[in-house]
Simulated scan of single mutants.
Amino acid sequence: MFSSGKSNQYDLEDRTHLFAKNVRALVKKLNKTISNIEDGKQLIRSSGSVGANYIEANEALSKKDFLMRIKICRKEAKESRYWLRLIDTQNKDELERERIDLENEATELMSIFGAILRKVENKK
């Protein structure tokens, strides 16, 4: 395992899981327009992939494998942020607040995975 600490590792597993669950809760509340249905599908896939790849990273067989999984986590968080920007909340205040909060969480996850990458790559 190439992560920096076990307690943080599991906190991040919980955080990515909660992110995916909260994304699903938001998507359920959206109006079922063609664009929201399609964008919602993509958002659900990418948000779930963040946590799934982080779990895989924690079971990495090598440093190279770990780095690749963390890069995928960062990429999927960035993709999630993109889909969150596209979904239409129809200016409903509560939905828009949830969307913005999730967009901010995706941005924070991108930063966290970027920091993990820099830390591990600098240990060479």
Rank of each mutant, 00 (worst) to 15 (best):
15 R>M: 14
17 H>F: 13
17 H>Q: 14
22 N>K: 10
23 V>W: 01
27 V>K: 00
29 K>Q: 09
30 L>E: 00
32 K>M: 07
36 N>A: 07
37 I>E: 05
38 E>W: 11
38 E>H: 13
41 K>F: 09
42 Q>E: 08
44 I>E: 11
44 I>S: 05
44 I>C: 00
45 R>Q: 13
46 S>V: 15
47 S>N: 02
47 S>H: 01
48 G>P: 01
49 S>D: 06
50 V>F: 12
51 G>Y: 00
51 G>V: 01
51 G>F: 00
52 A>K: 12
54 Y>P: 05
55 I>Y: 12
55 I>C: 12
58 N>S: 07
58 N>E: 07
59 E>R: 00
62 S>Y: 10
63 K>L: 15
64 K>H: 11
66 F>Q: 02
66 F>K: 06
67 L>D: 06
67 L>G: 06
69 R>V: 01
71 K>I: 00
75 K>Y: 14
77 A>K: 05
79 E>N: 03
80 S>V: 04
81 R>S: 10
81 R>N: 08
84 L>T: 04
85 R>A: 07
86 L>I: 09
86 L>R: 12
86 L>F: 07
88 D>S: 15
89 T>L: 06
90 Q>F: 14
90 Q>W: 01
90 Q>C: 08
93 D>H: 05
94 E>M: 08
94 E>Y: 06
96 E>S: 00
97 R>F: 11
98 E>S: 15
98 E>H: 12
98 E>Q: 15
99 R>E: 05
99 R>T: 08
100 I>R: 05
101 D>H: 03
105 E>G: 12
107 T>P: 01
108 E>P: 04
111 S>R: 14
111 S>I: 06
114 G>R: 07
115 A>T: 12
